[in-house]
Design a protein around this nucleic acid. Structure first.
Length: 231
DNA sequence: AATCGTGTCAACCGCCGATCA
DNA sequence: CTGATCGGCGGTTGACACGAT
């Protein structure tokens, strides 16, 4: 059996970490690497739970963590992926190098969420499934050239998620989303190029795919307003 | 100068799936 | 297979900073 959980032990320190505790944890990890957090805490001479040590390392002490203000590019990435993944902060954090899930979560609640809420636009309640049925790709090419917003959508093969951005009209209803002008593609991973036709076709066939259905049910479409935030 | 309200963010809590003995 | 434990995750809390009154 493993050691009894150190989480349940009494007398362990809580609250903010001292510089001495930080030093002990960093020195231990530099010397022995990361293995069992509970044992690490013990061997490093820390009166902390393994969880607390892990959190401190992941969110603060890890040298790969970037401190400081979020860039516009980082914020844009967070907004894009949040609209697709919802509050899956760890998944979003993997798309923003150097930022921890906790940091992204905090930044979302203190900054980004407010910016979206304060947008003048009402959030349309459109299901992706419905949007796929109203699109004629020939019409897309020959339509009006003054779109008002962008919409991002995605396809996932399990490991990677590809994003596609379209200009769309601001005219929404519950049955139809009109795509007026193909814009450009945002590719999340190199080599994953998705053309606009296959994008919508795959979206349509996602009806058969439970995982994709779940993915799109979580999609809030808040990202429609992302570009407006930075325009 | 004191008080209050608000924003920020580090850290904790509790849940749950993965892993191990 | 089972139960205990670990580690990861999202939600929440609370201490602190700072500006307004």
């Amino acid at each position: 059996m493993r050691d009894p959980s150190c989480d349940s032990q009494s007398g362990l320190r809580k609250g903010f970490w001292s510089t001495e505790e930080d030093r002990k944890l960093v020195n231990y990890i530099r010397k022995y690497g990361i293995s069992n957090w509970c044992k690490m805490s013990l061997y490093a001479g820390l009166s902390r739970t393994g969880k607390s040590c892990r959190l401190r390392w992941m969110n603060y002490l890890n040298p790969n963590i970037i401190r400081g203000n979020f860039t516009n590019e980082e914020e844009k990435t967070i907004l894009q992926y949040h609209s697709i993944l919802g509050n899956r902060w760890s998944a979003i954090a993997r798309k923003v190098p150097g930022r921890s899930d906790n940091e992204i979560k905090n930044h979302w609640h203190t900054n980004l969420k407010k910016r979206i809420i304060t947008q003048d636009h009402p959030v349309p309640t459109i299901k992706p499934k419905e949007t796929t049925k109203s699109i004629d790709l020939h019409d897309v090419e020959s339509s009006v050239e003054t779109p008002t917003s962008h919409v991002f959508s995605s396809l996932s093969d399990g490991d990677t998620t590809s994003l596609c951005k379209l200009d769309i009209s601001s005219r929404y209803d519950h049955e139809q989303l009109e795509v007026e002008n193909e814009s450009d593609y945002h590719i999340s991973s190199p080599g994953t190029i998705l053309d606009i036709k296959s994008f919508w076709e795959q979206l349509y066939y996602a009806d058969e795919d439970l995982e994709l259905q779940n993915l799109f049910q979580d999609t809030s479409f808040d990202q429609i307003f992302i570009d407006n935030l930075y325009s």
